[in-house]
Design a binder for these strands. Structure first.
Length: 587
RNA sequence: GGCCCGGUCGUCUAGCGGUCCAGGACGCCGCCCUUUCACGGCGGAGAUCGCGGGUUCGAUUCCCGUCCGGGCUACCA
């Protein structure tokens, strides 16, 4: 559907006015307004379309005048201080789905207002990772756009925030404060000891007289600019998935808008930019919920129409705590290195905290776009279940065309980050009854695949086809295909003891060699016939005693693809060599 | 401490006042398929819907309280 924006001349807000006005006038999209009995007012949720303030349907248009079409504009605005982690990926993915669903634009903006935490590597990591998972932007620092620049540090240089803070200062919604950080610290200490809410509720500057302020400036004292939070009123934030959230303005300290170094804080820069860039929906983590009233207020003080705020729940680890390495990984690139495909990764992550409303789970990106709706967004935090991701990933691998699968596998093998990841890998969370995972071994096996692809790609493809339905990750192919690729397979002691030491085995191996010499036919059917003939001749009731020793002789293992298929892929030469070697294990 | 958010099987979730002694999926268990392991198919165990009140003929669904969990409480985002 289309969104429409109209500008409402809102009278100066009063405590009673705003919520009622918003509710009764602006939100034709309110789906239900539940009232308890006895006059208790219940919670209400917005309609799935969750129109922003100032946005309505045709009826609103007729009643309230001019509307101009407004398309969805959303943004991802990370702070370049570290790696792109899985929780942030989900937020961008929601943003991406939402933009695609509504044919809107998606913008990348870099929030680098904290120079002390700025990490130049980080921005590249974000862009590269996002490119890997296939999330693209319509505007951003890497591609430019009509709202450039897209880095807040550059926007600061361009004077964008200066202009806006001046306006706020003029309007009396902001003021300069000259406390030193030490003074502020003492103030907080005092508040804590006296069990008062901590924060700056005015200090000595909120109501200082202008001469005093001028004097401090003349004396060259550093200062910050704070937002003047109106007192004694209720601030109602409309959240696109949580409904209305009320805050008592007296509980809100006056936040710093411009730091002493002249840089804006998040509160200020993000809201100014969101307005300037025409953001219609702000998707962000729920950790922003407590500061949402000051953001809402900023829009009001500027006289701007606020966007829809959507506070997404967080993803937590299996223990309910913040996601950490112990539960898999936090860094998105690590999932790639571990052999997860971007498709199922996105599919899985979307399903934590969102549901299409029906019972679909495995979905293509097109289906996700089509089904995406704010209504399906979850307000409660979700735990990250790596087992389900594995299942979904395995399912995707099975659904792939083998040639395409091999491409993906080789891309992983040749990605420099794969080597880096596994070389440094330490198993922090080993399985109870298994030895810890050795990254070096994993890497070695992956390189084996790379080498095999160069020597005999067709052979590797056949091996991949046979293992396709028994792996969960791309990395699993390393171990699964290893026996195809090495000359001397690792012979598992237990397998040797159980199957190779049986009395009929030497005759069986001789038989296979003899049959191999008879004909060059190495089809699956031929091996089927060869082994069954042996079974019949030996008068065996079951095929197992024929199949299992042969498998051990050829692969060193008791598990793997169907024996006849595997023999057909191995071919006569490899079979001969392996049987010859297997004989040395018999005695 | 203050403020805010959240609470359905172990996990992700469906559920919008009766169709729910709660549906699906992962995981787990069993059976089938089968030369093994997987895949696939079938079936099973598993949630007194955090707890207590209230509203209602009727509450997982609405309201209040309470408990528990989480977040915020910076010149960080």
């Amino acid at each position: 559907m289309d969104f429409f924006r109209f500008d409402l001349a809102l009278p100066p807000p009063s405590p009673a006015y705003v919520p009622i006005r918003i509710r009764s006038l602006l939100f034709d999209g309110i789906r239900r307004l539940r009232c308890g009995r006895g006059g208790q007012v219940g919670q209400h949720r917005l309609d799935s379309t969750a129109l922003p303030i100032g946005v309505g349907d045709d009826r609103t248009l007729r009643r309230h005048g001019t509307l101009k079409p407004m398309s969805v504009r959303v943004r991802f605005a990370p702070s370049p201080t570290g790696k792109l982690h899985i929780g942030a990926l989900r937020t961008v993915f929601f943003v991406h789905l939402f933009a695609k669903k509504h044919g809107g634009q998606n913008i990348l903006r870099i929030e680098d207002t904290d120079r002390t935490r700025y990490n130049p590597e980080s921005e590249r990591e974000f862009i590269e990772t996002l490119a890997w998972v296939g999330i693209e932007f319509d505007e951003g620092p890497h591609i430019g756009g009509p709202n450039a620049p897209y880095r807040q540090s550059e926007r600061k240089e361009a004077g964008i925030y200066q202009e806006h803070i001046d306006r706020l200062l003029e309007l009396g919604h902001a003021y300069k404060a000259f406390e030193t950080s030490q003074e502020l610290e003492e103030m907080r200490e005092f508040q804590t000891i006296n069990k008062q809410p901590t924060g700056y509720f005015g200090g000595s500057w909120r109501d200082a007289n202008p001469e005093q302020v001028e004097a401090e400036i003349a004396a060259g004292k550093p200062y910050v600019i704070r937002q003047r939070i109106p007192r004694d009123r209720k601030i109602v934030v409309q959240d696109g998935i949580r409904g209305r959230i009320e805050f008592e303005s007296n509980n809100l300290p006056d936040p710093v808008l411009i730091k002493a170094d002249g840089m804006p804080t998040y509160h200020f820069a993000a809201m100014v930019d969101d307005h300037l860039m025409g953001t219609t929906h702000i998707f962000r983590g729920e950790e922003w919920l407590p500061s949402s009233p000051i953001h809402w207020l900023l829009f009001e003080q500027f006289g701007w129409t606020p966007p829809v705020f959507i506070h997404c729940s967080v993803i937590v680890g299996a223990d309910g705590k913040k996601l950490s390495k112990r539960h898999g990984a936090t860094r998105v690139l690590d999932y790639g290195a571990q052999g997860y495909l971007k498709g199922p990764l996105k599919n899985f992550i979307a399903l934590i905290g969102w549901s299409p409303g029906d019972e679909r789970e495995i979905m293509t990106e097109e289906e996700l776009v089509e089904a995406f709706d704010l209504k399906g967004l979850q307000t409660s935090p979700g735990k990250f279940d790596i087992e389900k991701l594995k299942w979904m990933n395995g399912s995707a691998i099975r659904a792939m065309d083998p040639e395409e699968l091999l491409e993906a596998l080789l891309a992983l093998v040749h990605d420099p980050y794969t080597a880096q990841y596994w070389e440094e890998f330490e198993d922090e969370n080993p399985m109870p009854n298994k030895p810890p995972i050795d990254g070096k071994v994993i890497l070695h096996r992956l390189r084996l695949l790379g080498g095999a692809a160069q020597r005999d790609r067709a052979y590797l493809l056949e091996a991949v086809k046979l293992e396709q339905e028994r792996v969960q990750t791309l990395v699993d192919f390393g171990e699964a295909c290893e026996f195809f690729l090495v000359d001397e397979v690792h012979m598992e002691q237990k397998a040797v003891d159980k199957w190779l030491k049986q009395p009929h085995v030497p005759a069986l191996l001789d038989w296979i060699i003899a049959k191999l010499d008879e004909s060059a036919d190495t089809s699956v059917e031929r091996f089927d016939a060869i082994l069954k003939e042996f079974q019949t001749n030996a008068g065996m009731e079951k095929l197992g005693p024929v199949v299992h020793p042969t498998r051990v002789a050829l692969t060193g293992k008791t598990v793997g693809p169907g024996l006849f298929e595997l023999m057909s892929v191995l071919g006569a030469d490899r079979i001969r060599a392996r049987i010859a070697r297997a004989r040395t294990f018999i005695s």
